[in-house]
Simulated scan of single mutants.
Amino acid sequence: MQIVVRAAADHEVEAAAAVLSEAFAEDPVLAEIRPGRPGEDRTAVLGRLFSALVRSVPPHARALDVAVTGDRVVGAAFWQAPLPHRGGLRAFVSQVPELVRVLGIAGGLRALAHLRRMERARPDAPHWYLAEIGVSAAARGQGVGGMLLEHALDRVDQRGQHAYLESSTPDNRRLYRRHGFGDGAPITGFRAAAPVSMWRPAVT
């Protein structure tokens, strides 16, 4: 199947979030923040969460890329622009009710603790941050993740900027290394995961 990578339209946020929810359904860090509940449709719940997370960043301060075949979204990557984000507080506050509905109070507090740990590991130099990337089960093994990375990193390189992410698995780290990221320090404090920071300096 022919796959095209491009910027997502606003009406595709939910479709991109659905792909991310499928990709992260078994993620140990996410399971620590928002454990599954009996009888729930976990992918639907996580889809609401990812949609709220994307919309919690102002449109001018994010890049949501999608991989599509026909009119079907099969991959998504959510990037945040270098800080500071003008209007970021307003965008985040607008999504708080949905985040609380999905996470609950306890899950929200766990998520804040998780974000603080992640933020402490981020470099001081301004950078694009890859918050989430995922591919649907039907499209895995076809290089979609690499296509999404190349699309975004071309944009980053044209602007002469740095890029940063965290990775929890050796397989993913091999992919990121092929695209110019180097291993940084492990991020501690998680019970079921061992994410590693990864940095890609600006191309000069």
Rank of each mutant, 00 (worst) to 15 (best):
E119V: 09
N172Q: 05
Q2C: 03
R174V: 11
A17P: 05
P170D: 12
S168E: 04
G182P: 01
E26Y: 02
E98T: 15
G143E: 13
D71I: 02
L53P: 02
L64E: 03
A138G: 11
R110Y: 12
V19I: 12
I105Q: 08
A131V: 14
A113R: 15
Y176P: 08
P170N: 10
A8E: 04
A76N: 09
E26F: 02
A15I: 01
E14M: 10
G141Q: 07
E119R: 15
I105W: 11
V96T: 13
A76C: 08
G141D: 09
Y129S: 14
E150W: 04
H85S: 09
A194N: 03
A138K: 05
T204N: 11
R55G: 00
R62G: 07
V45M: 01
T169Y: 09
R6Y: 06
W79G: 11
A125T: 15
R122W: 06
V135A: 10
D124P: 13
W128V: 06
F50D: 03
G107N: 13
R72M: 01
R155G: 14
A18C: 06
E166M: 05
V100P: 07
L153I: 02
R34K: 14
V68T: 13
L175K: 03
S136I: 10
E14N: 06
P35N: 08
R110S: 12
M147G: 14
V96W: 13
D41V: 02
R55H: 01
A163Y: 00
P201G: 14
V29C: 13
G88F: 04
G141S: 10
E12P: 00
A18E: 07
R6D: 08
L89A: 15
E40I: 00
G70M: 01
P123C: 04
E26G: 14
P59C: 00
R155D: 14
V54F: 04
V66Q: 02
V203D: 12
R173V: 08
P195F: 01
R117Q: 15
E166D: 09
D27E: 15
F50Y: 13
L130V: 04
Q95E: 14
A111F: 15
G39N: 02
R155F: 08
P59Y: 00
L30E: 09
S51G: 14
M1W: 10
S51D: 01
G184H: 02
R140Y: 04
P97G: 08
E32W: 14
V144C: 13
